[in-house]
């Protein structure tokens, strides 16, 4: 698989394994609470993380909850 994605604003090589692989690469347990993922501006529900295929040029956002006011 070739190409790149934009992961949280940074260009990253596109790899097999989709969202789950991205989380594992970041040493994040995909089952951890409080995570959310969007691809190209649309939220991907957790149940679809293992199904959705990423393509060259996709913009992926992985967020969690931090302190806030």
């Amino acid at each position: 698989m070739s190409g790149t994605i934009t992961l949280n604003g940074e260009t990253t090589p596109l790899t097999d394994g989709g969202v789950i692989a991205i989380l594992r690469d970041l040493e994040i347990d995909p089952a951890a609470r409080g995570l959310a993922v969007a691809v190209n501006g649309a939220v991907v529900p957790r149940a679809q993380w293992s199904e959705i295929a990423l393509r060259d040029g996709d913009a992926v956002e992985v967020v969690m909850l931090f302190a806030g006011g």
């Binding site: 949280n8 969690m64 909850l65």
Partner: peptide, 22 residues
């Protein structure tokens, strides 16, 4: 209590407010 939504760090995992306060 209010919390913010932010991109996770690509350098490493930060503590989740959900685990801390949820």
């Amino acid at each position: 209590v209010t919390v913010s939504v932010r991109r996770i760090s690509l350098e490493g995992y930060a503590e989740s407010m959900v685990d801390l306060l949820g």
